[in-house]
Amino acid sequence: MDYFLELFLSGLTRGSIYALIALGYTMVYGIIQLINFAHGEIYMIGAFVALIVAGVCTIYGFTGVSVLIIAGIVAVIYASAYGYTLEKIAYRPLRNAPRLSPLISAIGMSIFLQNYVLLAQTPDFLPFPHLIPEFEFMEPIADIVGSAELVIWVTTLVTMILLTLLIKKTKIGKAMRATQQDMSMARLVGINVDRIISLTFVIGSALAAIGGVLVASYIGQVNFYIGFLAGVKAFTAAVLGGIGSIPGAVLGGLVLGWTESFAAGYISSDYEDVFAFGLLVLILILRPAGILGKARKQKV
């Protein structure tokens, strides 16, 4: 039972991270029907910027939670800026191009950003400082749940609630939903569609950066390549839950996290990625719209 619990909790942690990244995919896909392949790279850039800021701060004498907060904020700002620029350069000129074009452009961007970080920084894994402190109140259960894990769960939960509120309750959220439903109609009623799309990228990128900072300080190292696999997994999570749906992304992330965690724990850890992709293929065959997605008839 203990082993089960352990796997369950590690799946929850993993799933939370997937969910954070998957939200960016799902929002972008919902609005412009594009798999933003470079989203994983934004997450990686977020983690890298946090590492650099944290390093500089530590060397100049800052300590503890303040470093985490500064690094986190800077990472979010930078990831958003990258997301914004990415959309403007690689996707906006292709808004009316055939579907394959922006997808290839996205793959190109993903390769570009990976190699940009590789060349500008290093091909090696860099140690990431343990920024999340050990909470005292966690001590009694410290051997089951670490503080870092708790922080990840809470952050994911809070982010999710804030995002849902933003989309359901605010004017911006309303405009986003309108653009998602019908872009040309939204434009007609006076919504600045370009700005809404930019905003979607900014929010998605910010979430990815949060995920990046959390996972980096949990695992303790980053390199230029971490974004790729995380990105593919998060996309799998988004599809699993039903792409375009925000609760779907969270559910998909968790399901994927648990699948991997249990498969690695009970069957074989070498093949955990195989299970993840196997699950994706299975879902796409049996229920292409995902767990929470609505089947959309293609208009003829």
Partner: peptide, 17 residues
Amino acid sequence: RLRGDYLAIVTLGFGMI
């Protein structure tokens, strides 16, 4: 039955598997 972009991700997964 999958559309273009889902296809991309499944083939990517296939390559990795």
